[in-house]
């Protein structure tokens, strides 16, 4: 009853509700019919798909390509193993309680090293897989992970740098942050692709993946630095003063007392940037990398499947939504956990 009263309690609300219901009634059944009832799940090409329904056969046939890109099918297990390790490390960091430190070490050192060896190969009898063949959703995840892992430490330094009393350090940090926040990511990616080859000596090439990581890292560290600086400013000055009164150096007080509290306060902002970054990684298709969006756009050019943009981009939307939802859930969990362990409660 409360629900009904909320919907139809006043004439204005009733009018709005009726309008919304009419809108849903007009669109949802048609969408459901397109997406499910009239959809084709198995077909060899677009021509075999029913003309009025979704052609999910396209997504099904290309699913491995969407996830792994051109990574060789016989080596997919390496990617799976990597993601398993990443998942274990992340879950460990969230739920392992006191042994969290071990999992954090695994996430920051173990996963990059083992993952890098597994994915690239070339040693221990693993066949070499060129980064040019990495693609699909796997590439979005890898790019986001490396970028955050590199950008976090840089951004902490920048945040402290900007608050520093040494003019050179503070101006330098400010200039760096303002520059990278002020230029469009697309333009910088583009410069990385077009300009960089011209500056490198003849015959020396940098893989596109590295170019993308460098650009994304510089970019994201500027944003993260400002978020963390906000956190640093939010820590009462009494905290640092109390630490120094206990005999800590200035730097000890900052790193051991102020920074942990600042980071905890920055969690919502950091999660926000991670979600943003994950979606921004789709821009790398401009440097000739085939991330999920790039692979889908590319797949629409296959004469067998040409023109199935709606199905392809619907899949991309669902995939990105699920991933970003996971980040948000993890972020929310972290906030609740660390929120309880406030100053003096350890």
């Amino acid at each position: 009853m409360k629900f009904l009263r909320a919907l139809f309690g006043t004439p204005a609300n009733a009018l709005l509700s009726v309008a919304m219901i009419a809108l849903f009634a007009a669109t949802v059944p048609r969408f459901l019919r397109w997406a499910f009832l009239d959809a084709t799940w198995d077909a060899m090409s677009r021509r075999a798909c029913a003309p009025d329904g979704a052609c999910w056969a396209f997504v099904k046939a290309r699913f491995p390509l969407f996830i792994y890109g051109r990574y060789p099918a016989t080596e997919h297990w390496r990617v799976d193993l990597c993601f398993l390790l990443l998942a274990i490390a992340c879950l460990g960091c969230l739920f392992a309680g006191r042994r969290r430190g071990m999992f954090l070490l695994m996430l920051l050192v173990g996963v990059p090293v083992v993952g890098g060896v597994l994915l690239a190969g070339g040693i221990f009898g693993l066949p070499l897989v060129e980064t040019a063949d990495w693609g699909g959703l796997m590439l979005n995840v890898i790019l986001s992970f490396i970028t955050i892992a590199l950008a976090l430490p840089i951004s902490v330094l920048l945040a402290f740098g900007r608050r520093s009393s040494l003019p050179v350090v503070s101006w330098g940090s400010t200039a760096f942050i303002e520059f990278w926040r002020g230029v469009p990511l697309l333009a910088v990616l583009f410069m990385g692709l077009i300009m960089l080859p011209m500056f490198l000596p003849d015959g020396m090439t940098v893989p596109n993946l590295v170019r993308a990581v460098v650009v994304l890292t510089l970019f994201e560290s500027a944003y993260l630095a400002e978020t963390i600086r906000g956190g640093l400013q939010g820590v009462p000055s009494g905290q640092a003063e109390a630490a120094m009164a206990l005999g800590m150096h200035h730097s000890q007080a900052q790193v051991l007392i102020v920074l942990p509290q600042a980071l905890r306060m920055s969690i919502p902002g950091i999660i926000n940037i991670v979600v943003d970054l994950f979606k921004d990684t789709t821009l790398v298709s401009i440097v000739g990398l085939f991330d999920l969006m790039g692979v889908i756009t590319q797949s629409l050019k296959d004469p067998s499947w040409v023109g199935l943009a709606t199905e392809g981009y619907t899949f991309a939307a669902v995939a990105f939504f699920v991933c970003c939802l996971l980040f948000s859930l993890a972020g929310g969990f972290m906030e609740r956990q660390f929120g309880n362990a406030g100053p003096g409660k350890r």
Binding site: L65, T297, S304
Partner: peptide, 10 residues
Amino acid sequence: GVPGFASQDN
């Protein structure tokens, strides 16, 4: 990616 000239199969 352009149909007929260069595209990837499944």
